[in-house]
């Protein structure tokens, strides 16, 4: 029974990792940028949600809705000002720039909010703490289900936008060949900026769910970035549904590791990630990105 419990909790945790991975995967897919500030942007979003919901004394979910437009604008401006310039400097420059951006965000948050550990779990009420008790050893937390459902909704919505809408087609065309996209009239810079806006908004959703799930502080970003990155690689670069699978595989690996011994939790996730990298699929992934 503990195994079933571990797997169920892992699947639910996977929803959170998939949310984190989604924005990372989107930016990589569209702009070939690995956004090293992704985790920190998510934590920045979490702090914004925290500020809004404590100042206005509202539920963090309402706070998230109010924070989303702000983060959309932030993402748009970020691309237009910082990332677009760094893109012109070759493939390594965005890596360095986002690395630096991550440090700026972390230290900015440290200055503004102090290193205290916070959580939105308390103010979220029963959603954060309640669960369906199936048996003595198996209960399904509301927040886990809500996170997974949100992840499926976000990934599914993004998938539909990319497949079915004109803007989605523009994004796919720009991802494949920005030069030719501009030659058929697609304003590639605007497409990039909108993609970044969406990615940062999704990161904010992920950050808010992390904050309700557990705790966060200004230095939480890099850990989440690693989990997101692992989920993306396990699931396959550029594939949205793969990202969900990757998140779930990572989550299950961590909870199974934890049920063997709590200290193996994170390690088990890393081992699965390394196993995927070492597998033929991982090798093809590496050789493809070199080509």
């Amino acid at each position: 029974m503990t195994w079933i419990n571990a797997i169920v909790q892992g699947i639910l945790l996977g929803g959170l990792y998939a949310l984190f991975a989604c924005g990372l995967s989107l930016l990589f897919g569209v702009m070939r940028i690995i956004n090293l500030a992704h985790g920190d942007l998510a934590v920045l979003g979490a702090f914004l949600v925290w500020t809004i919901s404590t100042q206005a004394d509202i539920s963090p979910f309402w706070g998230l809705l109010l924070a989303l437009p702000v983060m959309l604008v932030l993402g748009y401006v970020l691309q237009r000002t910082v990332l677009s310039r760094s893109l012109r400097g070759g493939p390594l420059t965005p890596l360095l720039v986002t690395f630096g951006l991550g440090i700026v965000i972390q230290n900015g948050l440290l200055q503004a909010y102090s290193p205290d550990v916070r959580s939105l779990g308390g103010s979220a009420g029963r959603v954060a703490t309640g669960s369906w008790r199936l048996t003595d050893q198996l209960s399904i937390p509301y927040i886990g289900v809500l996170t997974l459902a949100t992840a499926v909704l976000v990934l599914g919505g993004l998938h539909l936008v990319l497949r079915r809408t004109g803007f989605g087609r523009d994004m796919r065309a720009t991802a494949q060949d920005p030069d030719t996209a501009t030659l058929v009239g697609v304003p590639a810079a605007a497409v990039y900026a909108r993609a970044t806006a969406i990615a940062v908004a999704i990161a904010t959703v992920a950050g808010a769910f992390l904050a309700v799930h557990s705790t966060f502080d200004p230095a939480s970003g890099p850990t989440q970035l690693i989990f997101a990155f692992e989920a993306v690689v396990i699931g396959g670069l550029g594939s949205l549904w793969g990202t969900l699978t990757g998140g779930i595989v990572l989550g299950v690996a961590q909870t199974i590791g934890a049920s063997i011994d709590p200290q193996y939790s994170i390690l088990a996730g890393h081992l699965v990630f390394l196993a995927v990298l070492a597998s033929p699929r991982g090798r093809s992934l590496i050789s493809r990105s070199r080509a």
């Binding site: 004109g166 796919r172 065309a173 494949q176 030719t180 996209a181 058929v184």
Partner: peptide, 20 residues
């Protein structure tokens, strides 16, 4: 040619049509 290889022919045309 530089068509968008992963997109269908119709999608290739629609992209250009959207900004026509």
């Amino acid at each position: 040619r530089k068509l968008f290889a992963d997109l269908t022919v119709e999608e290739n045309l629609q992209i250009a049509g959207r900004h026509a």
